[in-house]
Simulated assay, not measured.
Amino acid sequence: MLILTTPNIEGHKIVEYYGLVTGESLLGANVYKDLFSGVRDVVGGRTSAYEEELKKARDLAIGSMEEKTSKKGGNAIIGIRIKYNNLGGTMGNTIMVTVTGTAVKYE
């Protein structure tokens, strides 16, 4: 499925708009990852464990959006936006990934 941040598909005609589609995913971080992440940031390293978990959460959210688009008859999603929110509070150190876009059919 074609997934774009742009509002149109260059060189193609959008023949049907199916409306808003969304996908959400939650990522919980545990204390050990938090501690390890802080140490690596101090010494200038990258926190690859977190990057991998964020990628998984983002892919799950996008997959959910693709499934909803397919069920509506669409073959592309345009104008997508990805947001990351730290829920904190009663949810602990949880990050929510939200993806939104417009389901369309193009030729």
Results as ranks from 00 to 15, higher is better:
V104R: 00
R40L: 15
E66A: 07
K68L: 08
L20M: 14
P7V: 00
I9R: 10
M1T: 08
E51I: 08
G63R: 03
K56E: 14
T6L: 15
Y50S: 07
I78H: 04
N93R: 15
T6F: 15
K33H: 11
R58W: 08
G88L: 08
T98D: 01
T5L: 13
K13S: 12
S70G: 06
Y32K: 13
G92N: 10
A76L: 08
V21K: 01
E67G: 09
I62M: 00
L60K: 02
I80D: 05
Y32T: 14
N85H: 09
E107M: 06
A103G: 00
E24T: 09
A61M: 03
L20R: 14
M96F: 01
Y106S: 06
S25Q: 10
N86C: 04
N75W: 03
G45C: 00
G74C: 01
K83L: 08
E24P: 00
V39M: 12
G63T: 04
S70F: 09
I95M: 04
P7I: 03
L2D: 06
L20G: 04
E107C: 02
V43Q: 09
M1C: 04
G88F: 13
L26N: 12
I62L: 00
E53A: 15
G101W: 05
I95T: 13
Y17V: 09
T69N: 06
L20N: 02
L35W: 10
S64F: 04
L35C: 04
E67W: 00
L2G: 05
G92H: 08
M91S: 12
L27A: 12
A29G: 11
L87Q: 02
E66Y: 05
L60S: 10
